[in-house]
Design a binder for these strands. Sequence first.
DNA 1: TTGAAAGCGCTAACAG
DNA 2: CTGTTAGCGCTTTCAA
Lengths: 342, 342
Amino acid sequence: MQNKPVKLKNIAEKLNVSVVTVSKALRNHSDISKQMTATIKSVAKEMGYTPNYLARNLSSKKSHMIGVVVPKVAHFFFGDITECIYDYANEKKYEVILTVSQENPEKEKKNIQTLLSMQVDGLIISITQETKDFSVFRTLIQRGIPVVFIDRIPPLDNINIVEADNFGGAYKAITHAINLGYKKIAHFAGYSDINIGQERFRGFEQAMKDNNVPVMPYWVSRGGFGEKHGYDTFMELYKAKRLPDLIFAVTYPVALGVYMAARELGLKIPEDIDVICFGNTKVQEFLSPPLSCINQPVSQIAQNAVQLLIDNMNNRENYVPKKIEIDTNLILRGTCINFNSK
Amino acid sequence: MQNKPVKLKNIAEKLNVSVVTVSKALRNHSDISKQMTATIKSVAKEMGYTPNYLARNLSSKKSHMIGVVVPKVAHFFFGDITECIYDYANEKKYEVILTVSQENPEKEKKNIQTLLSMQVDGLIISITQETKDFSVFRTLIQRGIPVVFIDRIPPLDNINIVEADNFGGAYKAITHAINLGYKKIAHFAGYSDINIGQERFRGFEQAMKDNNVPVMPYWVSRGGFGEKHGYDTFMELYKAKRLPDLIFAVTYPVALGVYMAARELGLKIPEDIDVICFGNTKVQEFLSPPLSCINQPVSQIAQNAVQLLIDNMNNRENYVPKKIEIDTNLILRGTCINFNSK
DNA sequence: TTGAAAGCGCTAACAG
DNA sequence: CTGTTAGCGCTTTCAA
């Protein structure tokens, strides 16, 4: 069957008007009379007209599409934030084209290329934990393409940034722990060449210093943001008989890795070893025990990122990049709520 | 600064060849000599050429894009399956355009329209739990647009389907429970006008019947696939003093709702009330207690869906729709592993 | 092996 | 208010 898709020309012929008139009417252009607009629209509907965005965007030079690059999507944080970005972008009449880098810098680069080839009007990017070469991003900026970086941000100047207050959040959590009485505190940190690794570490370090608690080198590990880091590091410390009293995990997956290892070793949380992490999830409440955390308001991050991007897209000449930091708050559940020396 | 993007014409002029030659060379067309191809490619790279997919797709009438419509993405199942679809599709040199319906049929309809306007070559769809009007899908089929439905599938004939063996999985789980000694079994079911609601219920019912265990009407609820259903229904049963021994939850979120309610009421799982659910997650292992489930191999579903769609796209004339069912298996953890009368 | 002509479906600019 | 003319950047004939 495969009836050919109807196009403007078909509608125009049927009504004995020009293609331009139809095009304008369908877009509610003020040029066209109410009368005409109404008839054209009804005929278009009746004929089952579907606009061709490829053609529209090609000729208008605006795609009304936002490209998104995230390292993961089946992930507590990125799943959430992606969904929020869709919502806000759609609200603002933008389509979003999502790409997933799978924590792979090569793929990340390719994704950006693809998005550019699709002629997106702007990009929202969160980089992989492995990204070391930032030249792609630099090129983007040089080419004047509107970009907003969220959460995992490359160390570049003059870029749009939306992120949680990573330093402040970590500082808050560690201060809380120390006030409880904790002194043997470990930090399973992220890599130091990425902001969330760096800033969360700095917050940890500063809080320790301000409270005169020493930071032990063997209690600071640098292993990325996934379960494996939490699991492996915990196992190592256990074998070395150097378990701390509290572990501050750089992300929720890292904390989950700790839970895994602890269960395997028959250690009880929080009695034998206590944990707190950066980042909140619905399920943390149902873990055993419920996991306390530093909450970063995902929807605020998404909303600000979309807005910032739109601002940038609407004002590409002499645009000055902005940095927005979103406040965090502590959510205390079944961990890190009172100190009992191990 | 904003240096204009370079196009074929620029490369052609620089090399004193025609646009066509450049176009062909860049696509490795056999028309062009190895020599020429090499020079053109290197110059293109040097000039920072980025192909314009809008133009390319418009003129070639093939977009090499797959449209995906899912009800959610920040979700244990849909997040996973989306990521897998990206992987397989990219492997096959297709871009995927993801849209999220937010369990809203209106948005679902709009998403499909958008995807068609973007000229995707085919669609992978999982419908919302609220979708009652299936005419959009019927239109799609009539128009001969390649579509594959996954997991949540509308009741239509002659469509491509990839789903878990919902009936068999449920049957397996309930049989297991009955063999353990359970008789007072409730099913927090999904809506009955959608396959996963219907089939999982049928599996439950059949297993009960085959083992001569009565199905109590007040132990079968129909409340959708989210946490709220689990929570509300549990609360109601508790108030009515009609708690069963075991709850079979139609999805993992529903089971989570049960966990929530039980915790709030101070009831212990599995001692006071036992639970098993359809669908597996990484975190189930870390819940308290670890939640047993019927596992549906997500990546297999994704892979089959992409392959089926590509087959359909490559053979649009006289294509015969297929239905693929993926086997499930029981994963036993801390629930539904032995019967102790409550 | 290369290229000239035509056109994909639509919109912007201008004229009537 | 409506329509004509051009053209977006690329690919597909088809001729040289």
